[in-house]
């Protein structure tokens, strides 16, 4: 394959519960074996976002042509959130923002996130987050949630983490109908037909490859796209071209060609 491969969803740092170390050498070895050119990497493990973002930069400095830093912000410290995003994005050059509703104990449409979203909206950047929340009340829909978010923050590009790893008509319909909403593929499951379903329903321009490294293995996660029964061009878009377009990586003003 000649087109670039970009992993849109990966993590730096230790996760000892699952035996994951902050091992940059292993990270690069797996990326090489999987054929991943660049990984968008975040660190969401700390209550102190600055600490996580600095850890990300250790990876980026180690291999600047292989890692794209992704900023983390926590709504639990609203007095710090926007200031840290300013530092991470404008000071450290991070490419988009990751939040983690499951760990925050708040769904992604909780008003606690709105200062973060307002800032991202001004920057016209992307936010990646889970689309659902373990304690969503009955009747909650992904489409309803992201329709409201998109109306309130029209310049944010939303990436629904993990949704393209499943067969979920609600998520796919949301990505199809809302121009600024995208799906991402990583999942511990390799659900039969998921990639095919989401390409058919949401469109090949709306799906992004992600691995969830360093929890899950990029060589396994990329396989669900590589071996899917979809056209070759769709695979190339999912594996990298869509991320380049979404992050404007081909814009020299934003860091040059991928």
């Amino acid at each position: 394959m000649d087109s670039p491969v970009i992993d849109f969803h990966s993590h730096a740092g230790c996760w000892g519960r699952y035996g994951v170390d902050a091992d940059c050498d292993l990270y690069l070895k797996v990326m090489d074996a999987a054929g991943v050119d660049r990984s968008c990497i975040n660190c969401i493990w700390f209550g102190d976002a600055r600490r996580g973002n600095d850890l990300v930069m250790e990876y980026v400095k180690r291999a600047p042509d292989r890692f794209i830093g992704v900023a983390f912000a926590t709504p639990h410290y609203p007095e710090e959130a926007v200031r840290e995003l300013e530092r991470a994005v404008h000071g450290l050059g991070m490419a988009y923002v990751k939040i983690y509703p499951d760990y925050f104990g708040r769904p992604n449409d909780d008003p606690a996130y709105f200062p973060i979203y307002e800032w991202v909206d001004e920057q016209e950047m992307a936010v990646m987050c889970h689309a659902t929340y373990p304690f969503d009340p009955p009747g909650t829909t992904i489409e309803g949630r992201f329709t409201a978010l998109s109306e309130r923050f029209p310049n944010v590009r939303w990436v629904m983490a993990h949704t393209a790893g499943a067969v979920d008509a609600d998520a796919a319909e949301t990505a199809r109908t809302l121009p600024n909403v995208y799906m991402e593929t990583c999942s511990s499951r390799t659900t039969l037909g998921a990639t095919e379903f989401n390409v058919e329903r949401a469109g090949e321009d709306k799906v992004l490859y992600g691995s969830d490294m360093a929890l899950m293995d990029a060589r396994q996660q990329i396989a669900k796209v590589v071996t899917a029964d979809i056209p070759r061009r769709a695979k190339e878009k999912i594996l990298g071209l869509n991320a380049i377009r979404l992050l404007r990586l081909d814009d020299p003003a934003r860091g040059g060609a991928a």
Binding site: A33, A34, R189, T190, L192, G193, R219, Q220, T227
Partner: peptide, 19 residues
């Protein structure tokens, strides 16, 4: 594979990338 919950090929592809 864990078929049919999961697809057959991905883990096979993974095994071929382990060197």
């Amino acid at each position: 594979s864990r078929f049919p919950e999961q697809a057959i090929a991905p883990q096979l592809y993974h095994l071929h990338r382990l060197g």
